[in-house]
């Protein structure tokens, strides 16, 4: 039972606030010898596993660290390309940590505006008259709850599928937003909340 993340999206689809509250889980560290038995590929400036699942390493996981040093996108800590580094037999044995890639702030911005459009399409495709957009979206690992205010601000909460009481949480977040963002004379509307 948990709340994973909170997003606040303005009426134009821009992300104005974001909070994450989960510890990264499902990370696996392993030592490999030369021919790496996983197929890695570059995707969105990150090195992802494209083929080969073993020991908790899954397709879609990213290379997070090499020999205990965090990688920085597609580059190792000291500025070499990850794929080039792992292609060189002289660097083996090597210990690599894999895990679900964490979202960058750019990706969060993109996902927020993506949800904004999905919300609108959801109401357009409604088979019933007068439908709102997506209010709750269910997957096997999380539930996304969305509350849109009359002024068009969307509050989005990602929570555990069994977590109850999200509706009151969304109202409470709206209240906090009204009290501490909107009533702040230094806050300009539609802009990120700092």
């Amino acid at each position: 039972m948990a709340i994973f993340s909170v997003y606040v999206v303005n009426k134009a689809g821009g992300l104005i606030y974001q909070l994450d509250s989960y510890a990264p889980r499902a990370e696996a560290e392993k030592t490999f010898s030369y021919p790496l038995d996983l197929l890695l590929k570059l995707h969105d400036e990150r090195v992802l596993v494209a083929f080969g699942q073993r020991d908790g390493i899954r397709v879609g996981h990213a290379v997070l660290a090499i020999n205990g040093i965090d990688v920085n996108g597609k580059f190792t800590g000291d500025g070499k390309e990850v794929l080039e580094y792992l292609g060189n037999p002289a660097n083996y044995p090597v210990s690599i940590r894999f895990g679900r890639p964490r979202l960058t702030s750019n990706e969060k911005l993109m996902l927020a505006s993506m949800f904004h459009s999905l919300f609108a399409i959801g109401s357009q495709l409604s088979p019933e008259q007068g439908s709102s957009g997506i209010e709750m979206l269910e997957t096997d690992t999380f539930k996304l709850h969305c509350f849109q205010t009359l002024t068009g601000i969307k509050f989005v909460v990602l929570a555990d599928p069994r977590q109850a009481g999200i509706d009151s949480l969304l109202r409470k977040i709206y209240e906090i937003y009204s009290d501490f963002a909107l009533k702040n004379p230094f806050y300009s509307l539609e802009m990120p909340i700092r």
Binding site: S123, G130, G133, I134, T139, D140, T141, F142, L158
Partner: peptide, 24 residues
């Protein structure tokens, strides 16, 4: 969207969504 947002690895992925009037 869902596969990027998910905090954990998914099996079935997206199952359903609902608006104020219908459920998909």
């Amino acid at each position: 969207f869902v596969s990027k947002m998910s905090p954990l690895d998914m099996k079935d992925g997206f199952l359903a969504f609902q608006t104020s009037r219908y459920k998909l």
